[in-house]
């Protein structure tokens, strides 16, 4: 099992995490009109998770140099 296969599998995990946050009832918990720090909470949730997923993927791909 080399490093690149492990990275691939971790990235699949990122994808599954995204599915969980965007397409499960978790989404409805944040699909509300309440505001948080002046932002509608749904916007914060959608964009926040998005950025987190991207950074997670970036860290997996680039973070640990061979």
């Amino acid at each position: 099992m080399n490093r690149s296969i492990r990275t691939r599998q971790r990235l699949v995990g990122v994808s599954l995490l995204g599915l969980l946050f965007y397409f499960s009832p978790i989404l409805t918990l944040f699909d509300k009109t309440t505001e948080w720090a002046g932002f509608p909470i749904s916007y914060l949730y959608l964009f926040g998770i998005w950025l987190a997923l991207i950074l997670l993927a970036a860290w997996m791909v680039e973070g640990r140099k061979p």
Binding site: R8, L11, S15, A57
Partner: peptide, 11 residues
């Protein structure tokens, strides 16, 4: 979001 999620599978 669709492309973001599938990009993780590009590997």
């Amino acid at each position: 979001l669709g492309p973001t999620l599938i990009a993780a599978l590009w590997g």
